[in-house]
Simulated assay, not measured.
Amino acid sequence: MKSFIVLFIATLVVSAASAESCQKPKVEASAYVTEDATVLTKIAFTTQFTLQCSNGVKGISLYAEVNGKALPAVKLSADNKYQVSWTEDIKKAHSGDYSVKLYDEEGYSAIRKAYRNAEDPSSVKPLAVVVVNNPGVYLGPWINSEFLAVLLAALVSYTAFSAKSKLLA
């Protein structure tokens, strides 16, 4: 029984050591950002990308980091398609580019270690970086239609009463 356990652990160690990493990654990405925030409290960001490695490795577990938040990259299909999604409060979200740094398991553990030890995480090189552009969000018109209707009703009432008082005088 002991020899079986030792053999099992040795097999795990050898398989983990022989796991290939992605060499010279190429990323093709597309993104979607919520642009109409008239009734929302958060903005949704989604990016889908295809990862191609020069050494042909497929099925890598990927993780992403955006503005200090660690996120999992969800694998969508067998041809190395992934997706990363997150939300931000409307008041905290800025227009412009967001860098989505992609890490494999080794890089992700190094990032977590850097955060845990209060070290600079920028020393860990990402596998690839995807840029998501936020063009800004529409927060609605400057003047609400209800306010404009009340303002116009008050103006019409004032004009009508002024004309009536001039006719009676």
Rank of each mutant, 00 (worst) to 15 (best):
K69Q: 12
L148R: 08
V129D: 11
T41C: 05
V84G: 08
A19D: 11
T159Y: 07
S109Y: 13
S95G: 12
T41E: 13
A128W: 00
E119C: 06
T46W: 10
Y103W: 10
A17I: 04
S18A: 12
G140R: 02
V124D: 12
Q52G: 10
V129H: 06
N55D: 12
R112Q: 15
S3E: 15
A163W: 08
L148D: 10
P25D: 03
A44F: 07
V66Q: 01
K92A: 15
S21P: 00
P141H: 05
F8Y: 15
K91M: 02
V156T: 13
D104S: 00
E65I: 04
T87E: 06
G107W: 03
V66S: 02
P121R: 08
A19C: 07
S18H: 04
L151W: 08
H94C: 01
S77C: 12
E106M: 06
K92F: 15
Q52S: 13
S109L: 12
Y98C: 02
I43Y: 02
V84C: 14
A160F: 04
K26W: 09
D89L: 15
C22M: 13
N144V: 06
E146K: 14
L62W: 01
P141I: 01
V156R: 04
S61H: 15
K125A: 07
P126V: 04
P25W: 01
E35H: 08
N55P: 04
E35M: 07
T47N: 14
K42I: 00
Y158A: 07
S30H: 07
W142N: 10
V57N: 00
Q23H: 08
K91L: 02
L62Q: 00
A160G: 02
P126M: 04
F8A: 11
N133Q: 11
V6I: 13
E65H: 07
L139F: 03
G107H: 04
T47V: 11
S30I: 09
S165A: 13
K81S: 09
L12W: 08
S157T: 07
V33W: 08
H94S: 12
K125D: 03
E35S: 09
S61A: 15
G56A: 13
V33I: 13
A73K: 00
S109T: 13
K92M: 15
L71G: 08
P126S: 15
A153K: 04
F49H: 03
I5A: 07
F49N: 00
E105Q: 10
S165D: 14
I43G: 01
S99Q: 12
N144R: 09
K101Q: 13
V66T: 02
G56Y: 12
L168A: 14
Q83A: 15
F8M: 10
D79E: 14
F4A: 09
L40P: 01
S54R: 10
Q23D: 14
Y103I: 03
G136C: 04
T50N: 13
I111M: 10
W142F: 08
V130K: 01
L62M: 03
A154N: 15
P126W: 01
N117A: 09
S165C: 09
V130E: 00
A78Q: 14
L12P: 03
L168S: 14
S99D: 12
Q48K: 15
V66L: 02
K166M: 05
I5S: 03
S123I: 14
L7N: 11
L139P: 02
S122P: 06
Y63L: 05
L76I: 15
A128T: 00
V100E: 00
A114I: 04
V130M: 06
